[in-house]
């Protein structure tokens, strides 16, 4: 079973400021649809990058969804996050093909370079490092995806270089 680590840290002031009204169009779109729980939560995560507590409350009060059902779903599926994420999400593939082509070296190099563990966000809020199972580009193994760009046939060193380039672009 997947065990989601729920942060017990008090969320900082800055992260608490989410504009919850951004959810209105989403609620409008799905309010009368059967089986709307997952698309609603996916939509919420698209907006905020994670699912803030206020969003649960709003969805519950406006649509009559049970908090416990929502929490159950969010903790069941790998896609959902309960904590804010970095500006860029790095997904390192650990599917079979990437595993046999040494995907661990990519994660290790990134961990060291970014000073984070798998699943964590860098201190400056720039990157979140995640592992996924197969991005469907197995012929380019090992593979990683940054936001929506996929990079293949990597070594640890190249992965670090790609991240550095993203950083450079950000500071310009």
């Amino acid at each position: 079973m997947r065990i989601k680590r729920v942060s017990t840290k008090k969320i900082t002031e800055e992260q608490e400021q989410v504009d919850i009204n951004l959810l209105n169009p989403l609620i409008e779109k799905y309010k009368d649809k059967k089986g709307n729980l997952i698309p609603l939560l996916q939509g919420t995560q698209d907006i905020f990058g994670y699912i803030p507590y206020e969003a649960f409350e709003k969805l519950s009060s406006e649509l009559g969804l049970e908090l416990s059902d929502m929490y159950g779903v969010v903790t069941f599926y790998a896609q959902f996050r309960l904590n804010p994420v970095g500006k860029h999400i790095i997904k390192v593939c650990h599917g079979t093909a990437c595993h046999v082509q040494n995907a661990n070296a990519i994660t290790d190099a990134l961990k060291e370079s970014l000073k984070v563990n798998d699943g964590e966000t860098t201190e400056d809020g720039m990157f979140t490092l995640e592992s996924v199972a197969c991005l469907g580009c197995c012929s380019l193994a090992p593979v990683m995806m940054i936001d929506n760009d996929t990079h293949g046939k990597l070594t640890g060193g190249q992965a670090v270089k790609i991240i550095k380039n993203v950083k450079i672009k950000e500071s310009n």
Binding site: K34, G35, N36, L37, I38, P39, L41, Q42, D69, G72, V73, F76, Y77, A78, Q79, F80, A133
Partner: peptide, 25 residues
């Protein structure tokens, strides 16, 4: 189209159906 949310077990038929219905798969 229904987008999955990342759970291998949802490839199993009854879990897939539960997931489409908006539940834990």
């Amino acid at each position: 189209i229904k987008e999955g949310a990342g759970a291998f077990v949802c490839g199993e038929e009854t879990a897939l159906i539960a997931s489409v219905e908006g539940e834990r798969g």
